[in-house]
Design a protein around this nucleic acid. Structure first.
Ligand SMILES: NC(=O)c1ccc[n+]([C@@H]2O[C@H](COP(=O)([O-])OP(=O)(O)OC[C@H]3O[C@@H](n4cnc5c(N)ncnc54)[C@H](O)[C@@H]3O)[C@@H](O)[C@H]2O)c1
Ligand SMILES: NC(=O)c1ccc[n+]([C@@H]2O[C@H](COP(=O)([O-])OP(=O)(O)OC[C@H]3O[C@@H](n4cnc5c(N)ncnc54)[C@H](O)[C@@H]3O)[C@@H](O)[C@H]2O)c1
Lengths: 216, 216
DNA sequence: CAGGGATAGTGAACCTTTTCACAAGACTGG
DNA sequence: CCAGTCTTGTGAAAAGGTTCACTATCCCTG
């Protein structure tokens, strides 16, 4: 029994993305070598990553795209729709709400919250905006969601995340630059692209690539 | 002479971010232990990362926030303003253009391009939008930029990135889900948050955290 | 100016992750 | 049905990264 490297799990999402593309293109069979080329990975790594979760290929043949995709979705829990709740309908929040491709990938916004009373009650991308304080009521109804997307102003992020957790939500995609301090049973993924911009600056300045072995 | 781990470089940006906060709060001195707590890192790692680039601390005392920040900025090439050119002024592009905090961190949009002729000529967040085809002219004038931010529709991304490279730009922050195929001397950082959402799904489904040892 | 308490810098040990290399199985054509 | 070819699955080796533990250095107090 092996321990599963955390990074393998994250790569699974990457593989699934590319399998989805292959599937859409009508490709039925793929080898680890071909998939690796698409993902910019090493074929042995793909095989090893998959091996942590089972045997999905056929020796001498390759992987059946549809089967592997289905298996990966099951492993990752993405063979269902996940409901998202947005906090902070500003610049970024509006872009996220209006991003149709989320739905194609199984993510649907069921609620949106803002502090600003001018926004509350208005509709953005077909979604009526609720007041942040009402989270506990909203979550009991059709606005119930599984994952919170945090895009409030930075100075409200900690505070807001606490209320999210209090309401019983245990997963947060955090777009604010704040490192949230929350109980251990809450899963947080931080997205900060200024850090990525800095990596580019370093590359341009020194001429040396900051190659990423891990997808990010 | 040691080889510098690429990930160390990326962490530098993280340290710099937190040093910036300390500096704004008027803190003058910080130890590796304190900084590690803020960043969610190990103190030895911080010291080791810094050691790759020089000696910035005082034994028995700690690091002078202002000095260390200055040193890191120099190492990373962020002690100057970097000019950004936006491609694709849609949902996401508008949010990026309107994000004032970029400027605070030394990143300024000097040009914005779109394919849509209804958008070209209009002004978004104080920026006049040019036609994608005009990149070569724009880059010769005051609209010149160092880093391209790619937020076009996915099916135009590869094509658009090629034209960016042709115009002489060698760094791209790529928000599209496409893996760009470009010459080796072009630096690309991919931002794909659906992959992060999938990691959350996995955590929620299995109950096991996908802890990130590396900042992303 | 000596002693105690901090804390950076760093070689070495340790741990994790990637890559290699090959056996096992699957298909093809004759 | 056999030989040749392809590709997965996987133990083992290699590479890469993190953490430990210790030394060197500094500051402060008496
Ligand atoms: N816009 C970008 O491109 C971008 C890029 C990177 C990071 N971010 C981060 O995303 C966050 C939002 O950025 P933005 O540009 O959309 O800012 P914004 O000021 O346009 O929007 C913030 C919104 O959050 C709302 N808000 C504040 N406190 C709230 C609370 N407690 N509950 C619910 N809503 C609340 C505000 O009313 C406002 O509508 C910021 O933390 C920013 O640092 C934004
Ligand atoms: N909106 C989001 O929250 C979000 C999230 C993740 C990823 N993305 C990705 O970012 C990209 C943009 O998303 P969006 O929601 O802003 O889409 P959008 O359709 O609102 O905007 C795309 C814009 O790009 C322009 N465009 C197309 N081809 C171009 C070219 N060759 N040169 C310049 N401009 C061009 C279009 O005219 C349009 O204005 C997409 O690839 C999407 O997958 C968006």
């Amino acid at each position: 029994m092996h321990k599963i490297p955390n990074i393998a799990v994250i790569r699974l999402a990457l593989y699934a993305k590319h399998l989805e593309m292959l599937h859409n293109d009508g490709v039925e069979l793929v080898s680890s070598v071909k998939l690796a080329k698409m993902c910019g990975a090493n074929p042995a790594q793909i095989r090893k990553d998959l091996a942590y979760f089972g045997q999905f290929g056929v020796r001498g043949v390759g992987y059946y795209v549809k089967d592997l995709l289905g298996a990966l979705k099951e492993v990752m829990g993405t063979n269902r729709t996940w409901r998202l709740g947005l906090f902070g309908v500003g610049n970024l929040g509006k872009a996220l709400l209006g991003f149709e491709q989320f739905a194609q990938r199984g993510f649907v916004f069921t609620a949106a919250f803002d502090k600003d009373l001018d926004l509350v009650g208005t509709t953005v991308a077909g979604m009526e905006i609720s007041q942040s304080e009402d989270i506990k009521e909203v979550i009991k109804g059709p606005g119930c969601f599984d994952i919170a997307v945090l895009a409030t102003r930075a100075d409200r992020a900690q505070d807001c995340s606490l209320r999210i957790v209090e309401a019983g939500v245990h997963a947060i995609l955090n777009f604010t630059p704040v490192r949230l301090v929350l109980p251990d049973n809450v899963f947080v993924e931080n997205v900060d692209f200024t850090v990525r911009l800095h990596a580019l600056c370093y590359s341009l300045t020194t001429g040396s690539d900051v190659t990423q072995r891990h997808p990010r």
